[in-house]
């Protein structure tokens, strides 16, 4: 047994241990696209809140008009669905390129750990909307999304943890400044995704 062989063996061990645990098929490009969708969504939402009601005081616009609320929810859901779909398609492609199956143990684990905080947060937000605490929606979405990412970071690219931590901080900040929900959404879901996606693309995929 030579030094080189020993080193190679250790490399194999490391690789296998990493590979069995980590879901590595997340593409940076889908992060960038999700960020762009979020920015478009924020822009549309901004226009609805500020222009449809022609009220410059942002807060009333949110709360009073039922129609406004429904429009905003539709935009948010459209952004969510488009992002998830994009993430899925790019991950499938990347998994193929890596010669791995997309639906394996590591994928299941990352999804379970990500989904739990997301579902709990989603239910809490629905409760808050039904009780007309609209101001809590922006901070809660960002905070729960951040917590979900932070937890999922144990089972996929480590950098996701950073993205998660930043999202929770943006969420907390948005709780301090009520009324600027859309701005913080654009920052968290838009700008941060684009920065993160671009960084991951440059680091792992180019």
């Amino acid at each position: 047994m030579t030094n080189t062989k020993a080193l190679e063996d250790i490399k194999t061990i490391r690789q296998m241990m990493e590979r069995s645990v980590r879901f590595s098929s997340l593409s940076g490009i889908s992060g960038i696209l999700a960020g762009i969708y979020a920015l478009i969504g924020s822009y549309l939402g901004y226009r609805i809140v500020y222009l449809e009601n022609t009220i410059l005081k942002y807060r009333e616009a949110y709360v009073l008009e039922n129609q406004t609320l429904i429009h905003l929810i539709i935009i948010a859901l459209a952004v969510l669905v488009a992002s998830v779909l994009t993430g899925y398609l790019f991950s499938r492609q990347k998994a193929r390129a890596q010669g791995r199956k997309l639906w394996d143990r590591s994928t299941r684990r990352v999804l379970i750990n990500f989904s739990f905080p997301m579902v709990i947060g989603g239910l809490l937000i629905l409760i808050m909307i039904s009780r007309a605490y609209y101001g809590t929606v922006a901070p809660l979405t960002l905070i729960f999304y951040g917590v979900a990412l932070f937890g999922a970071g144990n089972f996929t690219l480590k950098e996701i943890k950073w993205l998660g931590a930043v999202q929770t901080l943006i969420g907390l900040t948005s709780a301090i400044y009520p009324g600027y929900g859309i701005v913080f959404w654009a920052l968290g879901f838009g700008v941060m995704h684009i920065i993160y996606g671009a960084a991951m693309y440059l680091k792992y995929e180019r």
Partner: peptide
């Protein structure tokens, strides 16, 4: 070696 590495995690 690979099998054991996976089974360790």
């Amino acid at each position: 070696l690979g099998i054991m590495s996976v089974l360790m995690t």
